[in-house]
Structure formats: structure tokens, C-alpha cells
């Protein structure tokens, strides 16, 4: 990796952390989402006579981004839920200017000796799947339970009227499809009409919605302990069922929709979520949010396809998302709505 990037990061961190002798070493890029470049590095410094070496993560904006996201939102969400005791990395520093590293970025703690599940894997968690699944849905319930003002995120983007937050999200993602589709999308258009014709009941409460809570966006260790919830870049205010619908979407089920996220049976997952969130689940409302989740997926994958096809971002993940994931979610929507 560029020594220049490493040196500039070192100077910046020494300044903001107030540690003049801080050294940055072993900076290397790692896979980590389509909206930000992700790098791992070691920070070495002396504190009160003790040599400290700490693994940190740099998340820098891409030159182009799949979905426009605010890195300040992501940073604040890390801070809020880290403080609340959820498995979330400690955020260290946020830089919104482009003078230091050419683009805005933030730095956070690296959660070491962990792995991430891949949707390419038929069984990413093996014998750990039930243990991981129970934590996965419990932590999602805790996010839903959090009071948005008490965690300091009451001003996040989103709709605070429980009766209108569904419409806010449908409008948002229809706009993305309008802007980014490169070919007519009859299934997405039909789904949008269906969602508008069949509105869900008002939200049981307004929560922080993670926005992309799924397989691939959390780390777990060899004992099956969930250690880090990542990628809060789409966090917003809204109906907590939005996150639940996304988390149980068939795309993340590794071929077995009866075990959402490739982990535990659906009924157990929903029961854990209800207990931890304190929200009584309305199954008809959840059904609406499941349709919405697949439509939201379609919108995201259309954006990915657009970025790739226009040559703005040739990351192969964009090609995969814009092809495999789009085809997958179109089928989910057609099968669900075509038999409704």
C-alpha cells in the first residue's frame, strides 16, 4: 500500500489522538463494502511508558459511491451503539474534509481474529449457526429497542411519523430506481405499485434502522460469538420492521429460507427479536416489509449495475450485485406478488 497514504494517516492520527510518536504500519486494503474503501493497519505508540500496538480500520469514501451515504451518520451510529454495549467497533476519528487523505474518511477499532459470512458460501457458519443466529436476532432486537433520542441519533435522516415512514422509504427507493435503471424494470415497477396500494399499519415505534443488517455485515469469532456489527452507512430513522424484513430476506438465507440468515428457524428468530425489542410482531406488517426489503434490494442492485456498466466503479462486487442479486430479488418479488 502507498507509503504516502500511510504517512499522511500517521500524521493525522498523531495529531487528533494527541500522541506525537504514533506510528502507522502494515496498511493494507481489505474487502469491506461498496460505499467505502476499507484498510487495516497497526497503530504503535507509547503511553505512560507502555508500548501499545493496536489494530485499526480506515474507511475512506470511494471516488464514486453505490448509494450516497453520509460517513458522519455511519460514524455517529458506531459511536451510539458502541456506547450502548452492542458488539460494535469503537470509532476513533472522523475527518469530513478531503485535505488529509484526498477524500473524507473515518478510523475505528479493528475487531481481530474474526471472520465474516459470505453469501457465496452454502453454509458459512457450520456448527456455529444456531449460536450465531440467536445473537444475530437478539442484537437486531436491541437496536430496535434503543430510544433514538437517548442514543443521540434522533436527528438522523428519515421519517419520524409512524404512519408515514413506509412511504418515505418507498419514495426514497423509487427515486433511486428512477435515477439509476439502465433498462425497464417491470417487476420493480409492479412491486412499487403494490406497496403503495397496500400500505402497512403505522410503525410500532420509530427506531434507528441499521439499513443493511445481514450476513456479510457482521464479524464472529471461532467460538461463534458475534463480535462486530458493521456497515452502518445506511442508518436512518424508521420502522424497525424494515431491518427485520431485510435480515430475513431469502437472499441472505444461503438457500434455505426457513432458516433466515442461514442460522436458526424463522419462528425462533422472530421470537428472539420480539423479546429483545419489546415489540409485539404484526405478521401482516412484517409481510409488507419483506416485500419492501426485496424491492429495496432491487433498487440497490440496479444502482450497482449502473455504477459498473457506466464504468464509474469497476469493482467486481458491483457486477455481482447488479447481476446475481438483481436476478435473485426479481424472482423473489415475482413469486411472492404473482401468487398474492
Amino acid at each position: 500500500m502507498s507509503d504516502d497514504l500511510s504517512e499522511r494517516l500517521e500524521t493525522y492520527l498523531a495529531n487528533v489522538m494527541g500522541i506525537p510518536d504514533l506510528e502507522v504500519a502494515s496498511l493494507s486494503r481489505i474487502p469491506g463494502g461498496a460505499s467505502r474503501e476499507t484498510y487495516r493497519f497497526r497503530a504503535r505508540y507509547n503511553r505512560d511508558g507502555t508500548e501499545i500496538e493496536r489494530g485499526l480500520i480506515l474507511r475512506r469514501d470511494q471516488t464514486t459511491s453505490l448509494i450516497e451515504t453520509d460517513r458522519a451518520t455511519e460514524f455517529r451510529a458506531y459511536r451510539a451503539f458502541h456506547s450502548l454495549g452492542l458488539p460494535v467497533p469503537e470509532p476513533i476519528a472522523l475527518e469530513e474534509g478531503s485535505e488529509i487523505l484526498d477524500r473524507p474518511f473515518f478510523v475505528m477499532e479493528e475487531i481481530e481474529n474474526c471472520q465474516v459470512g459470505s453469501i457465496l458460501s452454502p453454509d458459512p457458519y457450520g456448527p456455529l449457526r444456531e449460536k450465531i443466529g440467536r445473537q444475530f436476532f437478539a442484537n437486531l432486537g436491541r437496536i430496535a429497542r434503543a430510544d433514538v433520542d437517548e442514543v443521540g441519533l434522533g436527528d438522523l435522516e428519515g421519517e419520524r411519523d409512524p404512519a408515514k415512514c413506509w412511504l418515505h422509504e418507498v419514495d426514497r427507493w423509487e427515486e433511486v430506481i428512477d435515477e439509476d435503471e439502465r433498462e425497464p424494470q417491470p417487476i420493480a415497477r409492479a412491486a412499487l405499485r403494490w406497496l403503495r396500494r397496500n400500505p402497512p399499519p403505522p410503525a410500532p415505534k420509530i427506531s434507528v434502522v441499521h439499513g443493511d443488517y445481514r450476513t456479510g455485515n457482521f464479524l464472529y469469532d471461532a467460538d461463534g460469538d458475534m463480535r462486530a456489527i458493521l456497515d452502518w452507512e445506511m442508518a436512518h430513522l424508521g420502522n424497525p420492521l424494515e431491518d427485520l424484513g431485510w435480515a430475513i430476506d431469502p437472499l441472505w438465507s444461503h438457500g434455505d429460507p426457513s432458516r433466515p440468515a442461514g442460522t436458526i428457524p424463522r419462528e425462533e428468530a422472530l421470537s428472539i427479536w420480539q423479546k429483545e425489542s419489546g415489540i409485539r410482531l404484526d405478521t401482516a406488517a412484517l409481510a409488507w416489509w419483506e416485500i419492501f426489503a426485496s424491492l429495496k434490494g432491487v433498487a440497490i442492485w440496479i444502482s450497482a449495475a449502473r455504477e459498473y456498466a457506466d464504468g464509474r466503479n469497476m469493482d467486481p462486487v458491483n457486477a455481482f450485485s447488479g447481476w446475481y442479486c438483481l436476478a435473485f430479488h426479481n424472482k423473489v418479488l415475482a413469486d411472492r406478488l404473482g401468487t398474492a
Partner: peptide, 15 residues
Amino acid sequence: WDVLKAMAARRTLTL
């Protein structure tokens, strides 16, 4: 919907 379902099914990919 029958046409849309057939379209979606044909375009599905195997990993």
C-alpha cells in the same frame, strides 16, 4: 404475472 414469473425464473443464476 405469469409472464413476469417466467422471465424472472429464466434469468436466475446458479452460484
